[in-house]
């Protein structure tokens, strides 16, 4: 339980904070890629697949 909370407390700022400020907008590609990774993790329950999909998502969103 404890390590889940620390993971969550690390993940949120990584996704929502850009250049020191909150960014909830669709231009925040780390947030979008993060949501894709969360959905992937929820349904696949597979660590490696989640990491791969999350990184690929960021790469694709970043090159759009």
């Amino acid at each position: 339980m404890f390590h889940q909370l620390f993971l969550s407390a690390i993940i949120f700022p990584e996704l929502f904070i850009q250049n020191g400020e909150l960014n909830f907008q669709f231009t925040n590609i780390r947030l979008l890629a993060g949501v894709i990774a969360i959905v992937t993790a929820w349904f696949s329950r597979n660590t490696l697949i989640t990491i791969i999909i999350g990184m690929v998502a960021l790469f694709i969103l970043g090159s759009l």
Partner: peptide, 30 residues
């Protein structure tokens, strides 16, 4: 690293209290 943390965290969130407390921890961290 954050994606790895998502991959480690999300599959362990099964019960409603665990999900709620993880969400709270995330929001407080923000």
């Amino acid at each position: 690293l954050p994606v790895t943390f998502i991959a480690m965290l999300v599959p362990t969130l099964k019960k409603a209290p665990a999900i709620a407390s993880a969400l709270c921890a995330g929001i407080i961290a923000l």
